[in-house]
Amino acid sequence: TTITITINGEELRIRGDHEEIHKILKAWEEDHNDEEIVRLIRELAER
């Protein structure tokens, strides 16, 4: 699965399995701050 998210003008492409993507979207849905979401995404992007 690949998704693209733009946060603060920075486009981040994430490839991951369903569970990893779900974790990010769940954090977003629960209204975590952008920095935390960006950190989760970067961790995935670095793999």
Rank of each mutant, 00 (worst) to 15 (best):
E46V: 04
H22W: 14
W28R: 02
L40P: 00
E11R: 09
V38N: 04
K23Y: 11
N8D: 12
I14K: 00
A45H: 04
V38Y: 07
A45M: 05
D17N: 11
E20T: 07
H18F: 14
I21M: 06
T4H: 08
I7F: 09
E30M: 13
D17A: 07
T4D: 03
V38H: 08
I5Y: 01
I14Q: 00
T2F: 11
E20W: 06
T6P: 02
T1E: 14
E20L: 06
G16T: 06
L12Q: 02
A27C: 03
E10C: 08
D34K: 11
R42Q: 14
I37L: 15
E11N: 07
V38G: 06
E19Q: 10
L44G: 00
I5P: 00
T2A: 08
R39I: 06
G9C: 05
I21N: 01
I37Y: 06
K23I: 11
I21K: 00
T2L: 09
H18V: 15
E29N: 13
T6F: 14
E29I: 12
E11K: 09
E30Y: 11
R42I: 14
N33W: 15
E10F: 04
I37P: 00
N33L: 15
E36W: 07
E29V: 11
E36R: 08
I14L: 13
I3K: 04
R13P: 04
E36H: 10
H22G: 10
N8T: 03
E19V: 10
G16M: 07
R15A: 11
R47Q: 15
R42N: 09
R39K: 13
E20Q: 03
K26A: 14
I14Y: 02
R47G: 15
I3A: 06
E35V: 12
H18D: 12
I7E: 00
E35N: 08
L25Q: 05
L12S: 02
G9D: 04
R15I: 15
N33Y: 15
T2I: 14
E10L: 09
E36L: 07
V38Q: 12
R39G: 05
H18I: 15
R47D: 15
A27E: 06
T1S: 12
D31S: 08
D31M: 13
H22S: 12
K26N: 10
W28S: 01
E10H: 07
T2Q: 11
A45S: 04
E46Y: 05
L12F: 15
I14H: 01
A27S: 08
